[in-house]
Amino acid sequence: MATGGRRGAAAAPLLVAVAALLLGAAGHLYPGEVCPGMDIRNNLTRLHELENCSVIEGHLQILLMFKTRPEDFRDLSFPKLIMITDYLLLFRVYGLESLKDLFPNLTVIRGSRLFFNYALVIFEMVHLKELGLYNLMNITRGSVRIEKNNELCYLATIDWSRILDSVEDNYIVLNKDDNEECGDICPGTAKGKTNCPATVINGQFVERCWTHSHCQKVCPTICKSHGCTAEGLCCHSECLGNCSQPDDPTKCVACRNFYLDGRCVETCPPPYYHFQDWRCVNFSFCQDLHHKCKNSRRQGCHQYVIHNNKCIPECPSGYTMNSSNLLCTPCLGPCPKVCHLLEGEKTIDSVTSAQELRGCTVINGSLIINIRGGNNLAAELEANLGLIEEISGYLKIRRSYALVSLSFFRKLRLIRGETLEIGNYSFYALDNQNLRQLWDWSKHNLTITQGKLFFHYNPKLCLSEIHKMEEVSGTKGRQERNDIALKTNGDQASCENELLKFSYIRTSFDKI
């Protein structure tokens, strides 16, 4: 039985969820670079991206490699990797027998973001014989899940209580170790020597080791999670996991709180800001991140802002960003909400898709409305799209047979046209069989910064309504002859009103 693990408890099935942008060198404390989270699957090609990484700022997932063999891993080693800020997950990587050479110096898994409450997941690794993470000293947050690894031993010899604050939620089941077939031998045991430290858990006094050649490092209890030197002297209180010299914040392997210019500090002093819960960055760093993602459509890219001495992905609820200094300031009234469309555009074809934009005031991208039916549609669209004030790209209304009016965009005031449909149009209306009105132009103002209007096959939309939009939106004169079809717009509506004058002759039985 794995020490510190839980057996036999019912657990939810383990679901495996399925960018080499360097964020800056980590400095003297770390020998390499800070790398983003990685999802490495199918083959070993991307694994080489770990070569210079000291910190993975995010998670590391290595999974679904069915053609790899043990010899493929023999020359692979990433000794610079010290810390993973989120979680480490391995799933069905064939041929991998140990992690001792792959990650010989991995010391800390912070667990800032977890995989279903777990910071370390080893699942269905069919050839893994031992973990071998002999320098792993601290899992700051989260638990361990090690399950269905039929060859995995050296679990009962690990004292997880020396690595985690609590072992109650560890789930370590259905491994070879369960069948008591392992016969784990710690260093020196074969020669009758006791080389590794022994600890007591559940009444068992057991030597602690990761492999037959690597003991588990056990520091004096007084050192807590700070770690200790090879001689057993406690590291500085700002260290986490390990250090090369005692009581020196510049000799830590990793930091308990924050890293700044080669030393570990309790908090980031001005003019620095907390970033990702582990390091200090200056304003320029946060500003660069903001600008890199301002026009990016890459998933996970955030326009970072500053709030409460932190550089964070977005302002919290009730705050909006001051564009001059990136500071989050309290909103006066309802907060603006910028919604970034991942692929640059979004099609609204149902109430469900409209709900995804609920509360958005600025759309960074283009909207395509293609709704053919739905219950209580006008009210639903207004509830979900009615706060949109600005669209950076274009607005396209296409084959939306259920629409009679666009009044559900009740606050839309600006279409920038930074991206144009077919390279020309910022407003595009095609084949809307029941569209009769755009907006009530006596109450609604709309500016279209650039781009043209396109109207074709809107049989109940009168040309007068379209011409009014040209005047109000500032697009009059931009359109070419064929942009607004004269014969297919309003051709099934009563669009022309003329005053009919009647004269009559009164007659009676005795007068003409």
Rank of each mutant, 00 (worst) to 15 (best):
C228S: 03
R145V: 14
R298V: 10
P187I: 09
T157D: 11
I146C: 02
G37C: 03
P271Y: 14
V144K: 01
V93H: 12
G192K: 15
R41V: 05
I62Q: 00
L136T: 02
M137W: 11
T329K: 02
P249Q: 08
Q245T: 05
M65V: 05
Q276K: 06
S225V: 06
E124F: 04
P336Y: 06
N242I: 06
N105S: 12
I62D: 00
K80E: 05
E147I: 15
E207A: 03
S284G: 11
L76K: 15
D261C: 04
K224H: 04
T140E: 04
F258T: 03
H290Y: 13
L44K: 08
S54R: 14
Y259C: 14
K100E: 15
Y30L: 13
C335E: 05
C268Q: 00
G333K: 02
L60A: 02
F115M: 04
L233E: 15
G132E: 00
S143A: 09
K224G: 12
L88I: 15
N175I: 14
M137G: 11
T329Y: 12
I163V: 11
I146G: 01
C228Y: 04
K292P: 07
I201A: 10
T45F: 04
Q299R: 12
E266S: 15
L164Y: 04
G183L: 10
G227L: 05
F91P: 00
Y118Q: 07
F258G: 03
L233G: 12
H236Q: 02
N195Q: 09
P104H: 00
G188S: 08
K67V: 10
F205S: 13
L44D: 11
C235M: 00
T320K: 03
P316S: 02
E97I: 12
N175W: 12
V144T: 04
C280F: 01
C286A: 11
K129W: 02
Y134E: 06
E168L: 08
Q61L: 10
P220M: 03
N195L: 13
R279L: 11
E147L: 13
P316F: 04
F285D: 08
T45A: 06
L174G: 11
L327K: 15
R46S: 13
E238H: 11
C315R: 00
C186P: 14
N149Y: 02
S143F: 06
C196Y: 03
K191R: 09
L63Y: 08
H226T: 13
T107G: 03
L88R: 01
I40N: 03
C331N: 13
H226E: 06
P271K: 13
L81K: 00
G111V: 00
L64S: 00
H212S: 04
S166F: 05
C153F: 02
E124L: 02
N242Y: 09
G32S: 02
G132A: 05
P334H: 13
P197A: 07
L44A: 12
I312F: 01
I40G: 00
R41I: 12
V200L: 04
T320A: 09
T194V: 07
P104S: 01
C196L: 12
K191C: 02
G37F: 07
E51L: 09
R145P: 01
K67Y: 05
E97H: 05
S213K: 13
H291T: 01
H274N: 15
L155F: 08
H226P: 07
N242T: 09
V173R: 11
C53T: 00
L63C: 05
C268L: 01
G333E: 04
E151T: 02
G183A: 09
N43W: 09
P104L: 01
L64T: 11
P70V: 15
N202P: 11
P70W: 14
G300S: 08
C223V: 01
N325E: 11
F115Y: 13
L89V: 00
T85L: 07
C328N: 01
N309G: 12
R69S: 05
L102K: 00
F115P: 02
G188Y: 07
K100G: 09
S112R: 08
C215W: 08
W160F: 14
V55M: 03
L90W: 03
C209Y: 02
H290Q: 14
L90N: 00
D165L: 10
C239L: 00
W278H: 10
C264I: 00
I201E: 13
P197Q: 14
V173Y: 04
P70E: 02
P197N: 03
I82E: 15
N309L: 05
V144W: 01
I306R: 02
N170C: 07
V265F: 05
S112I: 15
E207W: 14
E238T: 12
G227N: 03
H214Y: 15
E151L: 12
L136W: 00
Q204H: 08
N202F: 12
C234F: 01
G58Q: 00
G300I: 13
Y304G: 04
N117L: 06
P269W: 11
D248V: 04
H212R: 10
C315Q: 04
R110W: 02
D165I: 06
N149V: 03
Q287S: 12
C196W: 01
Y171S: 04
F285M: 09
I158K: 04
F275I: 02
L327D: 15
P334S: 13
P313D: 10
E130Q: 09
H307G: 03
N170D: 08
H48T: 11
G227E: 02
C315P: 04
N308E: 14
T140C: 05
I40F: 07
T107K: 15
S237V: 05
S98C: 06
H28N: 07
V265Y: 02
S324L: 09
L326P: 11
T85Q: 10
N42I: 07
C53H: 00
E33Y: 00
I40M: 10
H127R: 03
Y273L: 05
N43F: 07
C219N: 08
L90M: 14
N105F: 03
A198W: 10
N257W: 03
R279E: 02
G232M: 02
H48E: 13
R162H: 09
C228W: 01
I163H: 01
F283N: 11
L99M: 11
E57R: 02
C219A: 08
C328L: 02
V265K: 04
C286R: 02
E180I: 03
N202V: 05
K148I: 01
I122C: 07
P197F: 04
G300Q: 05
I62K: 00
T157N: 09
T320G: 06
P31N: 15
D72L: 04
C311V: 14
M321R: 06
K224R: 05
C186E: 03
S77H: 02
N149I: 01
F115H: 02
R92A: 09
F285K: 01
L155E: 08
P79T: 07
P104F: 01
F205T: 13
H302P: 05
S317F: 13
F115G: 01
